[in-house]
Design a protein around this nucleic acid. Structure first.
Length: 347
DNA sequence: AATCCGGGGGG
DNA sequence: CCCCCAGGATT
């Protein structure tokens, strides 16, 4: 138990004071865990406070509209987390009488809760003996034990999951889980950790073998795709033409503008753009360039051009997803950051 | 097994 | 510029 004891001892001295560590309410822990998926603590903290303020209980959460949830989520990214939370809150109210489950086997069935989150909520709220395996745990174990199996391969996931559960300190799973994650976040951090002050530096495989910078191993990611969005901006009086994005692409159920996607911004492709604009909005339609923005996502780089749309004919029957909204209404609708920023810069 | 899903901070 | 972040769902 040397490994576990040292981690816990380190944790009790160095842990940050974070609000979700003061509760064992599964609902509150769920809020924090979903928000913190692929998200740094400092980035997620204001969102955690905002959600808890707006939805003190899971019943409050379930009663809200999906748009309200996504509006609160705006700017945090990975919006399926918000949609899944909305669904899960309603399942908890309808099937669990509004009492948030605390057992792994119940939690894992809920949308947006996978192995990591089920282990986190169950151990933190009910003390269930489930080891968390997140990015921090991968890194600490890979370095300490010198495991070079890629952490994003199926074998790697199985191997690390098995080891993590063997190491779990079953006398206090919650404490141990918090300890190893905090240790990974603060001491055994991704880049240039200060191993001279690490309590595990004597036994650490990576430090002994000068491999701290090489572990953990990760399989190469797919190359980012380039996409070219031509947004058509149209305002009449205090209203603006918006589109609700649908399933099958990024930013599902968020709002942007009518958009014509092309394969590039070359002269030839711009002729295609103009042709498409006129066939959709009438032959007299004119577009004038406003601004360009590059927007980078995990798997795509989106080149965004904004155009002012003029002299067009608008057919609601052909363009069902489009809608006129006032700027006041728009402020209540969830939007991707690139749209939000454009609106704030131009209106 | 591979790909998709955001946005921001830090080296 | 590149990497990573209290991952999960879909194909």
């Amino acid at each position: 138990m040397i490994f576990q004891n040292k981690l816990i001892t380190w944790y009790l001295i160095h842990k940050r004071d974070l609000p979700w560590r003061h509760t064992n309410d599964a609902y509150v822990i769920w809020l924090s865990e979903i928000i913190l998926q692929q998200t740094r603590v400092e980035q997620g903290l204001p969102y955690f406070n905002k959600f808890l303020e707006n939805f003190p209980t899971v019943t409050d959460f379930a009663a809200a509209s999906e748009a309200k949830v996504l509006k609160l989520w705006q700017g945090l990214g990975y919006y399926s987390r918000g949609r899944n939370m909305h669904n899960t809150a309603q399942i908890v109210v309808n099937n669990y009488n509004g009492i948030f489950p605390t057992l792994h086997d119940d939690l894992i069935k809920l949308k947006g809760i996978g192995e990591y989150t089920a282990a986190a909520i169950s151990s933190f709220s009910s003390g269930e003996a489930r080891a968390v395996v997140d990015g921090n745990v991968f890194r600490v174990l890979a370095r300490y034990y010198g495991i070079d199996t890629p952490i994003n391969s199926p074998e790697g996931k199985k191997q690390f999951f098995k080891l993590a559960n063997e190491l779990l300190y079953t006398e206090d799973p919650a404490l141990y889980n918090q300890a190893i994650m905090e240790f990974g976040a603060i001491q055994c951090k991704p880049k240039s950790p200060d191993c001279s002050i690490c309590p595990l530096n004597i036994e650490c495989y990576a430090l002994k073998n000068n491999a701290v910078g090489q572990l953990p191993v990760k399989l190469a990611k797919a190359e980012k795709k380039h996409r070219y969005f031509n947004y058509l901006v149209s305002t009449v009086d205090d209203k603006i033409l918006v589109r609700e994005r649908q399933a099958g692409d990024i930013w599902q159920h968020l709002y942007d503008f009518p958009c014509i996607e092309t394969t590039g911004f070359s002269t030839e492709e711009d002729e295609t753009l103009e042709f498409t604009v006129k066939s959709n909005f009438g032959g007299e339609t004119e577009i004038t360039f406003i601004s360009y923005k590059k927007h980078v996502l995990t798997h795509q780089i989106i080149h965004v051009r904004f155009f002012a749309l003029k002299n067009y004919i608008f057919n609601f029957n052909k363009q069902k997803e489009l809608n006129w909204v006032s700027f006041n209404t728009l402020d209540e609708l969830p939007q991707p950051n690139v749209i939000r920023n454009f609106i704030e810069e131009n209106f």
